[in-house]
Write a protein that binds this DNA or RNA. Structure first.
Lengths: 339, 339
DNA sequence: GAAATTGTTGCACGCGATTGCAAAAAGAGG
DNA sequence: CCTCTTTTTGCAATCGCGTGCAACAATTTC
């Protein structure tokens, strides 16, 4: 009659059944699985035995309904197969598991609307918190989250949101250091290779770099193209290196761009790094340590970011909205002269 | 008094409140948000209006409790920041979202016990399904999953489990083709570079390659070391290339190893690819297309895998356990002569 | 031995939704 | 206008669990 229901029928064993088998009340079962509840050693043993035999597991959906705490944390992210993103996700979900929470993964496209939808989903699932790695949701939605008592963490999102924790890198300052490094290496013509997506942190790096150059009275070439991926780095390098005044130093908005730039400089333009051209990246993805690149870059401390985010989730908020500033460490490798 | 409760207090608006505001019964609200339920146009409008004003969202926890269908799908995976894994996760979570399901991410360490724990968690959350990308859970647990009506998908896991869908690559056959490719390129001394973790698919590649060589009456060198990462490739290359009879062709168990092997062959041993040595990888990670590598490799069709997995979740099982065999395509690039 | 204290246990209610059922309302047909 | 059919609606039961409350048992104290 109802074949669809038949197939999807889930028959999990409930606390009632365990109680019957153990010869105790349902409350006893519930208390056995509630840390800190009052149960005698004897009943606990019998309950555990019955639970084991029947394959009982507490229903976290129902528990979440009662406790008003689902244990779910929503991770909102786009292009999650990118090296930096995936390592951040890994770090976060690892930290979450350490405090018995569990990550729900939602990937979005570029649009802010899809981030809004993701947050709505988080609300529907009564997620304890949402961590946003990409895009920027509408204020009305974030307000609803906060009002509903959901925690909110924005990573490298720049824009402020009441009641949310914001973890940001000090992009400007880092960019400044990149410029100094180029100067020390004796570079004369510096350039900045950026994507054209214009996210706040990328723009901050650009602005910081340009500002440092202007401050030093040096001209700087800025080129922007495509998403922050390898292929864009290829195009950017082609544009930069065919210029009349060829740059001898390129600061790239992130490591993937840098890889594309380096490969193109070497293979297509037959330049050597760092003798003909110095390159600095940003993120500290694993590939940069590979001997084909050996890229000097700024390290985003993903573990620290993850730890800060998760520990804030488990601790009460101190003020209305908190900002955490992290200074990325410049990791010296072979793509810049000197060091 | 109870400061902790205060802080974690979540105050979501419930269907009751919406009903009151709209002047209808709770059932009407529920039906408005249940596709296919019978509600008049007028009440639906009033309900939606009230819901909008109050910021109401259906509680999926409670819905899941009633419907016995949480909408959650558990992804169990280790080392998820690895390029191949992260692209597979992306593909799967994307497909899941397309059918209104949502991925919970659990990362495990190497041990099978942690996979067991992950599955137990999946049961606790009444996940509609679990997809296992790493490790192999105990049969007692998988049986419990299947008995409870939870769907199970094993990707590249080899070992059989009753009631589960198994998606496997035809590793042996692919390895055979790799050997043929080397022969066509005129290679004389072939080698296989493997990790020593010994997962079924890696071993299948090794066995297939060795079998093909033996069949052709050619000797083959096999070296195993470490996890399937770049750094292991470096070590493997050092071991292989310092041998008296230096191989002129290396089939690597996966792309990361291949990258390490290539870099080491070039930079440390000053060999050129593919003239001095040919290399073939496995997985088709993005890095292999970078011009520093330009690696000939077997493409794991992640989108196809994801699609098969998810479509099986939404369709009734036809038989007890289903196996799907996929033949990876050999993508020819510059790391092998000829082609 | 009685009273006070401490520790367990079961009952019953509530969490926020879905849904079968029957009553009420609306529409159709003559 | 009345009857028959079709929609719409509200009531109440249900899902699996947590927990306050009161009853009860065990232990301590005087």
């Amino acid at each position: 009659m109802r074949e669809k229901a038949d197939v999807n029928q889930k028959i999990f064993v409930s606390a009632k059944e365990v109680a019957d088998r153990a010869g105790v009340s349902r409350s006893a079962v519930s208390r056995t699985f509630t840390p800190g509840a009052s149960v005698s050693e004897e009943t606990r043993r019998r309950v555990m035995e019955a639970a084991e035999a029947l394959g009982y597991h507490v229903n976290h959906l129902a528990r979440g309904l009662m406790r008003n705490e689902s244990g779910l944390v929503c991770l909102i992210v786009s292009e999650m197969d990118t090296p930096y993103r995936s390592s951040l996700i890994r770090a976060i979900s690892h930290q979450l598991q350490a405090v018995s929470k569990i990550a729900m993964l939602i990937n979005t496209d570029r649009s802010d609307k899809s981030v809004d939808d993701a947050l709505r989903l988080a609300i529907s699932y009564r997620a304890d918190a949402s961590i946003i790695l990409s895009g920027m949701p509408d204020k009305s939605i974030t307000d609803l989250c906060v009002k509903s008592g959901q925690r909110l963490v924005l990573i490298n999102r720049d824009e402020e949101r009441e009641g949310a924790l914001m973890i940001n890198l000090n992009d400007r300052e880092a960019a400044h250091r990149a410029f100094i490094a180029f100067q020390r290496a004796g570079c004369r013509r510096v350039a900045f290779a950026n994507s054209d997506v214009g996210t706040p942190s990328l723009m901050a790096r650009e602005e910081g770099f340009v500002a440092a150059a202007i401050e030093a009275g040096v001209e700087v070439i800025v080129e922007r193209f495509g998403p922050t991926r390898y292929q864009s780095g290829v195009i950017l390098a082609q544009r930069l290196l065919t210029r009349e005044a060829r740059p001898d130093a390129i600061f790239c908005a992130n490591d993937l761009l840098a890889c594309g730039v380096m490969d193109t400089a070497r293979h297509q333009f037959k330049l050597t790094v760092p003798d003909d051209i110095c390159v600095i990246g940003f993120d500290y993805i694993e590939q940069c340590s590979w001997s084909s690149y050996d890229l000097t870059t700024f390290a985003q401390p993903v573990d620290q970011i993850a730890k800060e985010a998760v520990s804030w989730l488990t601790h009460p908020a101190k003020t209305d909205s908190i900002a955490s500033q992290i200074s990325p460490e410049l990791v010296w490798r072979g793509s810049v002269r000197g060091g």
